[in-house]
């Protein structure tokens, strides 16, 4: 069971870290935040209708990603941010409401822990195979459409002007985010799943400036945070989702402090060089 959880944490951390990198570069971080909470609302609904948490989260996340993906091609980025934040509140409310509606029997099962703080027990072999499949499909997508995706990452407007279907690639990316989150939710819980998407890329951006390095570092940090979180939660008997979130947030803090120290050193050296030139 622990081996399955370890592999799942590596896959979830790596896939979410990579998706987070693309979400940030595609400028859809807020939208993916709402997709994560759509998955949470779906997972919570599963408690009431007594269905599988992952599949219910998957349906909610995919429908929302598809709907908002299509709508966002017709509205400005500013409007998209506002609508996304509105949905974030709505999905949180739905999640809380569904937990409130759950019977006492449901509240004592493993399902509730999956929705709220994640569970090692919730990761089965069949879910692991599906997660591995999704990871493989996403890597294949990146391989086939690498030139178009690179073009969007380099200059979104220019890519659009040259006939790259930027809107379609954005919707596809949102769908992958929705699917990945629905699976990763079993490990981290619905309220913290976004940390796997956001914290690794935020840390990578603090540590390196070149996009190519960020692309490698973000999934690496994601895998490291998920695996360390799982290990600490096992040793200390802490909730796995919260432990992963604490580890990834600590990495982000360390990365931020490192970047600040480097920036201070660089500006001090630049000042010294300026003074010596003045003499």
């Amino acid at each position: 069971m622990l081996e399955v959880a370890a592999i799942a944490s590596l896959l979830s951390g790596g896939l979410c870290g990579l998706l987070g990198y693309y979400a940030q570069r595609f400028n859809i971080a807020t939208l993916s935040f709402s997709v994560a909470h759509a998955a949470l609302a779906g997972a919570s609904l599963a408690l009431v209708i007594k269905s599988d948490v992952t599949y219910s989260a998957l349906v909610f996340a995919i429908l929302f990603a598809l709907g908002m993906g299509i709508i966002s091609t017709r509205i400005s980025p500013h409007e998209r941010e506002l609508i996304s934040m509105g949905f974030f509140s709505l999905f949180n409310a739905i999640a809380i409401f569904m937990v409130y509606m759950s019977t006492s029997y449901v509240l004592s099962t493993v399902s509730i822990s999956v929705v709220l703080w994640g569970s090692v027990l919730a990761i089965t072999k069949s879910k692991l195979i599906l997660l591995a499949g999704i990871t493989a499909i996403f890597m294949l997508y990146l391989f086939i459409f690498k030139p178009q995706i690179d073009s969007i990452l380099f200059d979104r407007k220019l890519a659009k002007a040259e006939g790259v279907d930027v809107d379609l690639h954005t919707i596809v990316l949102l769908l992958f985010i929705g699917i990945a989150i629905a699976f990763a939710l079993r490990l981290t819980g619905g309220f913290l799943v976004f940390t796997l998407l956001y914290n690794p890329v935020a840390s990578a951006m603090q540590l390196v400036r070149k996009a190519q390095w960020q692309q490698v570092l973000a999934p690496t940090i994601g895998m490291l945070a998920a695996l360390l979180g799982l290990t600490f939660s096992y040793i200390l008997d802490w909730p796995v989702g919260a432990t992963i979130a604490i580890i990834s947030s600590t990495i982000l803090m360390v990365a931020y402090i490192t970047r600040t120290i480097i920036n201070m050193k660089l500006s001090r050296e630049a000042r010294r060089a300026q003074i010596s030139r003045g003499r």
Binding site: P147, D150, R209
Partner: peptide, 16 residues
């Protein structure tokens, strides 16, 4: 810090 080479930027024009 943008590390794409000039050749790569020109090649991106052929993305489609």
């Amino acid at each position: 810090y943008e590390s794409y080479t000039a050749k790569h930027v020109i090649k991106l024009g052929l993305a489609t």
